[in-house]
Amino acid sequence: MIKIANVSKNYGDFKVLTDCTTSVSKGEVIVVCGPSGSGKSTLIKCVNGLEPFQAGEIIVDGTSVGDPKTNLSKLRARVGMVFQNFELFPHMSITQNLAIAQVKVLGRKQDEAMDKGLKLLDRVGLKAQANKFPGQLSGGQQQRVAIARALAMDPICMLFDEPTSALDPEMVNEVLDVMTELAQEGMTMMCVTHEMGFARRVANRVIFMDHGRIVEDDEKEAFFANPRSERAQQFLAKILHH
């Protein structure tokens, strides 16, 4: 589904990503972790072309992301993304947030988009909030709406960029529960997160990044039982003491 091959990216002399290679198959859940500044957020943003990269190739469902001839908007419409700061559109009600891209990008009818939005809103447990505005919801609720907004586009896979880091601790689980459910239904997911409990429960593989390189790319069990690199061991130790 997603193939990342030898991807490198730099801002001037500063190397953000160096020679990253990995892949995500259909139905797989991959967790990407690593210390801050390790390039994990940048890598996931390269997947749907929000960040350009200088070398290597990323193929999503047969389409090359780096190819200047690719219609990135079309590709992005098929790849769902959830952001650290939710990024709901503050000037639109929750239902408008859910419907706007369905109508303007996919060309669905307004009613159809509303129905679909409400169904998904119900699924993330927020049907009662349909007519509110993002600013009136808690962080956890906003993030669940953001997930529903991405799902409304019927994505072939979902990218999560630290979806719980901006949340108060008591709200983390409501978001992780929605993500877990999604994983169990077979959604292809690539998640940048520090939530190791989530990784243990649902991930197929764990990727550990440091200084812009993919240091480990392992089956979940192998990663947690016996991380090969010293950096990953330190990272896991630190996370546990959090």
Partner: peptide
């Protein structure tokens, strides 16, 4: 800055 990314990620073109 994330607002622009969120719009693009939903498949909007830059003008949209």
């Amino acid at each position: 800055k994330g607002q622009k990314n969120a719009g693009l990620a939903l498949g909007f073109t830059l003008p949209q």
